[in-house]
Computed example of a mutant assay.
Amino acid sequence: MEQRSWTQTQLAKQLGVSQAWISKVCRGVADTGLARAQELLSRVGWEVRFSPSVEEPVERREFLAAAASVVFVPSTANADPYLDHNYVRTLTDSLARSRYELGGMPLISRALVHTRHVGALRISSLSTQLQEAASDLMYQVSVTLYDAGQLAQSEHAGTVALELAHHAQDFPAQARAYDALSRVALYRSDSTRALQYAQRGLRIPDLPASRASSLYMRLGRALVSIRGHDRDARNALETALDAHGLSPFAEAALGGDVAIGLSQLGEYDHANVLLRKAADAMGQYSPLFQAQYLGRQAQTAIRAGRPGLTAEYMGTLTRALPFISSARVNTRVREILNRTKQWERIPEVHIARERLHGMLAPETTSS
């Protein structure tokens, strides 16, 4: 508007939206969400770019150099680039980085393209290197589609990742695929199946500490949902937290994920401490993960019956929403809004609800 000296009405006409909605955005009452912002700005000659400041410059340069090198590798005419294991690994890195920054929803099409190409390969005829690389890619496809709410496709990708890992005899990749499948089953409230996947993963020998701890976390959260297994669930979650030698990212994510199980067990104070650490730490790595743990903080405060603390966490979550596009986070926001109706007459909760609701993109706002 400022650059082109447009009125709100003129901008609304150019974007194909109402003037009232433009007014709300200008006043900070509503927000486009990242995916819609990209779409709208492209109509008037602007684009959104993300360049995470948390990455070390050398890491960023190395990644870009790797991406450029695999694009221009000489090959025979009509060769399938998905038969180049270096190319597949660079696709995997790109998908993971984009998910950490944006969330899964803007990446659905890209993830399904990868699924189609890998699905067309004859797994048994591939080299071990390519089987391992393709398994890594399909794991990232699985967790991307999971975040986007595409659970059937996510489960399929996890199954393909597991098949490729078995052919390659890659034990860590097998454990990772079981982790992904347990995650999807748990989100579907299929606790028994989530438990079985976690147990299968834990039976794999010589697991890295990060993968074993993640599987114990899945095991504990599955047991939480099965009546009469609270003690076993707590033991599994404590075992997960006892892991040593994790990277700062893995340690923060693990603590946040364990906290979800502890919250379900009624251990609200411990869960809140872990979630706060996870949300603070994730600000250095991933807007998506940070928003997820902020949402979990609000849900934990709701379970604990603390409206003031809930309003505080809702306010922080409101500020995080415009930077990501995640079906899981959107679902969590709607759950928070629904469960805080009971405190609607408390002023700080009322204000927090209005602002949080206003930050949902128009197509995801509930009526």
Rank of each mutant, 00 (worst) to 15 (best):
R27F: 02
Y293A: 04
K13Q: 15
Y100K: 12
L145A: 02
L219E: 09
E62N: 12
S286C: 06
H244N: 07
L219V: 03
D242C: 05
F63T: 10
M138W: 03
T365Q: 15
E163L: 12
T364V: 15
N330K: 02
A291H: 00
G245N: 06
I351H: 04
V184N: 07
G119S: 01
Q131G: 02
Q169M: 10
A165C: 08
V224W: 01
T76D: 09
F63C: 01
V113A: 05
S127M: 06
R188M: 08
H350F: 12
I204M: 07
G245W: 05
R60S: 12
R60V: 13
W46Y: 15
D206K: 14
L294F: 03
S124M: 03
D93K: 14
L246G: 06
G283D: 01
Y285K: 03
H166S: 14
R234W: 02
V333H: 08
L207F: 11
D280V: 09
T239L: 08
L107M: 02
T159Q: 13
L151W: 07
L237A: 03
V349M: 11
Q10N: 00
A259F: 14
A361T: 13
V141C: 04
Y285C: 02
A209R: 09
G266A: 06
Y268F: 15
A243Y: 07
L15G: 01
S42T: 13
D80I: 02
A111K: 12
A233F: 07
L274Y: 10
A233D: 02
V48I: 14
A271D: 05
E348N: 11
V113D: 13
G308E: 12
A79F: 12
M138I: 09
A194N: 04
A222V: 11
G255C: 09
V184L: 05
R43Q: 14
A304K: 07
V224I: 10
I324V: 15
I260C: 07
T128L: 04
R122A: 08
A173K: 11
Q196W: 11
L309K: 13
E39L: 14
L274S: 05
S127A: 10
Q150L: 00
D84P: 09
Y313D: 06
S124R: 10
I324N: 05
L151I: 09
P362M: 05
G28I: 00
V73Y: 11
E354Y: 08
Q150D: 05
A279G: 04
E56F: 12
Q129M: 06
N78T: 05
T159N: 00
L11K: 00
P322T: 02
L91W: 04
R234V: 00
Q131T: 09
R200C: 06
L241K: 00
T316P: 00
L112Q: 11
T76F: 09
S109G: 10
D230N: 13
V58W: 13
R97Q: 14
K277G: 00
E55A: 11
